[in-house]
Simulated assay, not measured.
Amino acid sequence: MADIVLGPVSETFFAQPTLELAKSLLGCLLVKETEAGTASGYIAETEAYIGPGDRAAHSFNNRRTKRTEVMFQKSGLAYTYVMHTHCLINVVSGGPEKPEAALIRALEPVSGINLMKERRQLADQSNLTNGPGKLTKALAIDMSDYGQPLYLPPLFIAEGKTPHSISYGKRIGIDNSGEAKDYPWRFWITGNPFVSRHQQVLGTTQP
């Protein structure tokens, strides 16, 4: 598929409560422009993190470090961090001094698919971007994107397609976060084949 050029959403798009933003991101395009070309994908899965009362959030208890500093800034910035050698990307939300974010967990590839395959050294498209570390490698998102406004190129969110239905359930990989492990703050496009992991659906909602 040929590369496409899309305009980013406005900065005001990110001025939503974090749980609403995590759902509104579903179906939007995450786009990264590089010298090698443009790659993009529909956001298929997100998780909301609402600090400082969320034990699973990096900003729990208003924890302010070099890593989390961007979470205390305005909404719509990229919060990237490295976990187990993989870079992950979050959308900062909540507004200044309210350190919240939505993790992008999975994408449905749209453009630059051959470039993604080259970066991931994979021929199987179904496995390119179905995980938070996979999608960043496929789109060449790394720590240099920390603090990047996601309403401006080269890394940005663009309008995509509205999901027919959104499923929600517990977040993944946060078993040591007390009661927070049970919060139903993971959202995904119902039935999308690129969701990172299939588990119990606690409910569905319309966008």
Rank of each mutant, 00 (worst) to 15 (best):
I172E: 11
G169L: 08
L155K: 08
L25R: 04
M143N: 10
T68V: 00
G173A: 05
H86G: 02
P193L: 13
L128T: 08
T205I: 15
E118F: 06
M71R: 09
P207R: 15
V5D: 13
G191A: 07
S40K: 01
P109G: 07
D145N: 13
F72K: 08
H84V: 11
G173V: 07
E159Y: 15
K32W: 10
I43Y: 00
K170F: 01
G203Q: 06
G95P: 03
S144I: 09
I172C: 07
G41D: 06
R105V: 11
Y79A: 04
I157Q: 01
T80F: 00
F13M: 10
L135E: 05
V9H: 01
H86K: 08
P52T: 10
L26G: 01
V91H: 01
K66S: 13
V91F: 07
P163M: 02
M143G: 01
N61L: 14
P154N: 12
A39W: 03
F14E: 00
A57P: 12
M1C: 09
V91D: 02
L21T: 02
R186P: 00
M1R: 10
F13Q: 13
V70T: 15
G95D: 09
C28I: 10
E179H: 14
M71N: 07
S111D: 14
M83C: 13
G173T: 07
A138H: 10
A102Y: 01
P184M: 12
G173I: 10
I4V: 13
Y183I: 13
G169K: 01
L26V: 03
A78E: 00
G27N: 02
A39N: 04
D145I: 01
T204E: 12
V5L: 14
Y151K: 07
A57L: 09
A123Q: 15
L202E: 12
P163V: 00
S10N: 15
N61D: 15
E45G: 10
N192V: 02
Y151H: 14
G41W: 05
A57H: 03
L150C: 06
R55K: 15
S75I: 05
W185F: 12
A15E: 15
N192Y: 03
P149R: 05
F60K: 10
W188H: 14
S177V: 06
I166T: 08
L155Q: 09
A36K: 15
Q148M: 07
I157W: 01
H58F: 05
E97S: 13
P153A: 10
